[in-house]
Amino acid sequence: MANTDRIWRFALYGALLFAAAYYLLPLYVMVTTSVKSVEEIRAGNLLSMPMAVTLDAWSKAWSTACTGVSCNGLSGYFWNSVQMVIPAVAISTMLGAINGYVLSKWRFWGSEVVFAMILFGVFMPFQVLLLPMAQTLGMFGLANTTAGLVFVHVVCGTASTTLFFRNYYVGIPDELIKAARLDGAGFWRIFWRIILPMSTPIIMVTLIWQFTQIWNDFLFGVVFASGDAQPITVGLNNLANTSTSVKEYNVDMAAALIAALPTILVYVFAGKYFVRGLTAGAVKG
């Protein structure tokens, strides 16, 4: 019996290692290709280790690679994304927390209808929003700006964040809110002093979810931004599609890794909080 258990355990570990290697193989190819020279890439194969590690491709992708008519690398696009992501994630998360708090603990006549309408936004294809959103940005004078992209992502992300927080807050006992109201606490005091300190798991889920969605977005970046306001996903697309005499795969791979690095780091260092938060809110009605 013990031998059978040991065999099954080895088989399970072997299957897990095979799956991990299979899914990590593209990342390995990208990393090794990005630190090879063009000559070595031509002479070798995709899976070979680099004979001489060089970061020239990374330097070029960051500062001198051509993205269309401009040859200033991805650095400007990267900082555009940073300036867009931080306020968009913070605002959409805070709005979702307030909405979820209201819709779960301060119910009013028609609150379920309001929640259903907000929930409908989670399933609405973003392509449907392009024309009305473009008209709205034009009216507000936010077209082709980073502030406009922040506005778009806040509007489109609030539906998801509201759903996350509302489902989480439903599991908090109503008696806790009633007791605080009897003690004289108002709407905002209850939110800041009681609800928000209990929201760490779902806040982490929402921050990671929103950061990933907004950082990796290409559709809104290419439609609603131009020139100096474009995010890194658009810059990466421009770099990969810029024609040169020699195709520098190492620069393309380095550029792709630069674009993906923030989300990779977020999941490496905060992925466990994401799983815990989803588990904590998984059975909330």
Rank of each mutant, 00 (worst) to 15 (best):
A2N: 15
T4D: 15
W8T: 11
W8M: 14
W8E: 13
R9W: 09
F10R: 14
A11D: 04
Y13I: 11
G14I: 05
L16A: 14
L16E: 07
F18P: 00
F18E: 01
A19M: 11
L24D: 08
L25H: 06
L27A: 10
Y28D: 05
T33Q: 10
T33H: 09
V35I: 09
I41Q: 05
R42I: 01
A43M: 11
A43H: 10
N45M: 13
L47G: 00
S48C: 00
S48V: 01
M51L: 14
V53I: 07
L55S: 14
A57F: 01
W58D: 01
S59E: 11
S59W: 10
K60G: 03
K60H: 07
A61Q: 05
S63Y: 03
T64R: 10
S70G: 02
G76P: 04
G76D: 08
Y77T: 00
Y77P: 00
S81V: 01
M84Q: 07
V85L: 07
P87Y: 12
A88F: 02
I91H: 02
T93M: 10
N99C: 08
S104R: 02
W106F: 15
W109R: 15
G110N: 04
E112I: 02
A116C: 03
A116D: 07
M117T: 13
M117K: 09
L119C: 07
F120K: 02
F123E: 10
P125T: 08
P125L: 06
V128L: 08
M133I: 09
L137S: 03
G138S: 14
F140K: 01
G141V: 06
N144D: 15
T146H: 06
G148K: 04
V150P: 04
V152G: 02
V155P: 00
T158G: 05
S160A: 08
T161Y: 04
L163S: 07
N167I: 02
N167M: 04
P173I: 12
P173K: 04
E175R: 05
I177P: 05
K178P: 01
A179P: 03
R181H: 11
G184L: 08
G186T: 06
I190K: 03
F191T: 01
F191D: 01
R193S: 15
I195H: 06
I195V: 15
I195Y: 06
M198H: 08
I202K: 02
I202N: 02
I203G: 09
I203K: 10
V205S: 03
Q213A: 13
Q213Y: 12
I214K: 01
I214E: 02
I214W: 03
D217S: 09
D217H: 08
G221I: 04
V222K: 08
D228Y: 12
I232R: 00
G235K: 03
A240S: 11
A240M: 13
A240P: 03
N241S: 12
S245W: 05
K247Q: 14
D252L: 15
M253V: 13
L257S: 06
L257G: 05
A259C: 11
A260E: 01
A260H: 01
L261H: 09
P262Q: 03
I264R: 00
L265K: 03
L265F: 12
V266P: 06
Y267W: 09
V268K: 03
F269Y: 15
G271R: 06
G271S: 10
Y273W: 13
V275P: 05
G277M: 10
A280K: 13
V283L: 15
K284P: 09
